[in-house]
Simulated scan of single mutants.
Amino acid sequence: VPAWTDAHHIKHWAKGGPTVMDNLVLLCRTHHTLMHRKPGFTGKWEIRMGTDHLPWFIPPPGIDPDQKSRRSTTRL
Results as ranks from 00 to 15, higher is better:
1 V>A: 13
3 A>N: 02
4 W>G: 11
5 T>C: 15
5 T>V: 12
5 T>R: 05
6 D>P: 01
8 H>T: 01
8 H>P: 11
9 H>I: 09
10 I>N: 13
11 K>N: 00
14 A>D: 08
15 K>C: 01
16 G>C: 14
19 T>H: 12
25 V>W: 05
26 L>Q: 04
26 L>F: 06
27 L>Q: 06
31 H>Y: 06
31 H>P: 14
31 H>A: 07
33 T>V: 15
34 L>P: 11
36 H>G: 00
38 K>E: 02
39 P>H: 01
42 T>D: 10
42 T>E: 14
43 G>N: 02
44 K>L: 08
45 W>H: 03
46 E>D: 15
47 I>F: 10
47 I>T: 07
48 R>Q: 07
48 R>D: 11
50 G>P: 01
53 H>V: 05
53 H>L: 12
54 L>C: 03
54 L>R: 11
55 P>E: 01
56 W>M: 14
57 F>H: 04
57 F>W: 04
59 P>S: 13
61 P>C: 15
61 P>Y: 14
64 D>H: 08
64 D>P: 00
66 D>K: 07
67 Q>F: 00
67 Q>L: 12
68 K>P: 01
68 K>A: 14
68 K>M: 08
69 S>Y: 00
69 S>V: 09
70 R>L: 05
70 R>A: 14
71 R>F: 02
72 S>G: 02
73 T>V: 04
75 R>E: 14
76 L>Q: 09
